[in-house]
Design a protein around this nucleic acid. Structure first.
Lengths: 119, 119
DNA sequence: AACTTGATTCGATAGATGTCAAGATAGGTG
DNA sequence: CACCTATCTTGACATCTATCGAATCAAGTT
């Protein structure tokens, strides 16, 4: 919980005006790049989209897995990458684990890519 | 030129509503993931931000390179990755090569990450 | 307590990636 | 043409990543 607050603070301190407005500095690019990297795999991108568009606002791993050709451990690995990038959070309820999107993080990334009038 | 048109068409055909609206299908995620992947390196992200925020609307490789600790060939490699992802285009004028952002592509990606009201 | 099911972690492996030095290309200048 | 500068390509190498099967952990059921 202390850890979570720290992460949030770092995020707020570092992140980030639109790319097209002012060039990112080294710290900002090193902060943002891993998040885009997490989006840079087709399986992860689709996992995230399934989670983010789930009507219930969350999705069970048990409902995610059948939609893919890869093994359970591989899905688990990709979910971990998305989790460590701060794009989703997981919660265990009984036997099942449910994942929710972290919409603020997605919005941050959207903002960075957003078009702005240059010059 | 024919090739460019084809790429544009594919882009238009495949791409993409916000993540949070409807889950991406396999083709969409395979189309988008490489573009996010291209953003997933700190050097590339900073290169792109320098190019996209250049007041002149473009930037010479000769002005990009000095801002980084990596070698010229490495910069060249990263520019190629960004180019192949369709995020920038390069043009040679005399001795120098100038890169411009492809703003429509960046907007496409921003749109995918954009927040929308679920449920 | 033993068994079952869902999910993660571990260990291994093939393939991708970032990096550099060296060589090749493009285009200008003497 | 010979030379110089800017950029890109090639080849090599160390590291990282996606994937799987096997083992482990968590929680419920009998």
């Amino acid at each position: 919980m202390t850890k979570e607050l720290e992460l949030t603070d770092v995020s707020a301190a570092v992140c980030c005006e639109p790319l097209a407005d002012t060039a990112l500095d080294v710290a900002q690019s090193e902060f943002l790049a891993p998040k885009f990297k997490a989006l840079g795999d087709p399986v992860r991108l689709r996992l995230l989209s399934m989670i983010a568009s789930a009507p219930a606002g969350e999705m069970c791993v048990c409902d995610l897995t059948p939609g893919f050709d890869v093994s359970g451990p591989t899905i688990s690995h990709h979910l971990k990458v998305l989790r460590e990038a701060g794009l989703i959070v997981g919660e265990r309820r009984g036997t099942w684990v449910y994942y929710r999107p972290v919409r603020e993080r997605l919005s941050e990334l959207a903002k960075v890519l957003e078009a702005t009038q240059p010059a």
